[in-house]
């Protein structure tokens, strides 16, 4: 009998342990997505602080919407967006970037303040970035700098 109870306990313990493992695995995918999303926000921040477009170019989809204070306004291919933003940062040289708002959902967005230097003068611009999760990866669908 004693043996029976010991066996039952072991069985119970094993079952509970397995179930816990299973349950723990459920949010793993979501956590992975969230981690990647945080990564994208981090990359965006570094891009706007340094002007290095390569940090976010991998997030560009086939067509991305750009609306910039230089008058650029429309949908552009990922390749075009790279060079357009590169040119933009050559004119408005980045100093710093700070987020004012971030939304971490499947159709997330972020707003921030971009500090730059242009024509011997420092200034700031409002930035809006829209991201989406599509085809198992995060993409930047819209960048507005005003």
């Amino acid at each position: 009998m004693k043996k029976f109870f010991i066996n039952i306990n072991i069985l119970f313990f094993l079952t509970a342990f397995s179930l816990s493992l299973l349950l723990a695995g459920v949010p793993t995918q979501e956590i992975q997505n969230q981690k990647k999303e945080l990564q994208i926000f981090s990359d965006i921040e570094r891009t706007f602080s340094s002007g290095n477009i390569s940090l976010i170019s991998s997030y560009f989809p086939s067509q991305i919407y750009l609306s910039l204070s230089t008058g650029v306004n429309g949908f552009y291919s990922g390749n075009q967006a790279y060079y357009i933003l590169q040119n933009y940062f050559q004119v408005y040289q980045p100093i710093a970037f700070k987020y004012t708002q971030r939304s971490e959902s499947d159709n997330g967005f972020a707003t921030g303040v971009f500090s730059f230097e242009n024509r011997n003068k420092k200034g700031t611009a409002q930035v809006f970035i829209s991201i989406e999760y599509s085809g198992a990866r995060w993409k930047i669908s819209l960048i507005t700098i005003k």
């Binding site: 552009y76 075009q80 790279y82 357009i84 590169q86 040119n87």
Partner: peptide, 9 residues
């Protein structure tokens, strides 16, 4: 020289 009109990687 404006990549708005065309640019490729």
């Amino acid at each position: 020289t404006n990549p708005n009109y065309f640019s490729s990687a």
